[in-house]
Amino acid sequence: MGSPTTLWEQFCSQPIVEDCPLYDMHGHWGSTTGICLPAAQFETARRLLERSGVKRLVICHHHALFSPEAGNATNVAAVRQLPEILRAYLAINPNYPELMAQDLADYDRYPEVYVGLKMLADYHRIAVDAPDAAPAWEMANARGLLVLLHTWGGSRYDGYEQVKSVLERYPNAKVLLGHSLFGEWEHAAELAADYPNCYLELTAASLERGGMETMLRGVGSEKLVFGTDFPWFGYPYCVGTILGANMTDENRRNILYRNAQRLLGEASHEGEG
């Protein structure tokens, strides 16, 4: 048998493919309610990230999202534990405008930590386009920050209409639709095609075969980014999903690292700028 040529063959022969680094734009950190995650333990998480050669994982700590008293300090601590791999999204919960204002004011204190903002509207039960969320959007829009949204088909908090509304209003924010409006793949593709500032994050791809191909057809691989929800989902399975989908290896490279490198402003190892 000859040396492996396709990405599938390469990933089957070794867990790390040097010229295909993994950039994960949707992750979390630590323990959370309702599930016992093996990778909630720091050492396990680090081993799994290193074993899969993850170059960059952008997280938002579970406690920052779910426990206002713990807050964004957990993000800072997490990134400082593993600074060579981790970056964070500042957790935004518009139910607490004073906390949110303080968090936004603190954002610049941690340039080595934060690359953008994260909203979890379905869980916080406040729409992404609610007036209380406006200060976060205004900051993201003014600075061209990444904003990772949890999005879900049919949601009245972060469904198609609400997401469309913020894309329209804040054209300079780079908005990642986490879970790609789960189940409404055509709507997700439509938004990413219509709005230059809209990208689709593919955590959902492992959960429903065929959705990714629908989005790829609708908008092309330049608007799709890899995500795993780590420590929920693991790299071997999620990379296998990308490798198993009906697309070319060039598309897979766009998804696994090129688009994220561009969004994060990180240098490409391929020398393309």
């Binding site: 599938w8 492992s206 075969r209 071997p236 399975y237 296998g240 999903t241 490798l243 198993g244």
Partner: peptide, 8 residues
């Protein structure tokens, strides 16, 4: 995706 289970 069967590839995912195999790689997993």
């Amino acid at each position: 995706y069967p590839h995912a289970a195999v790689l997993g």
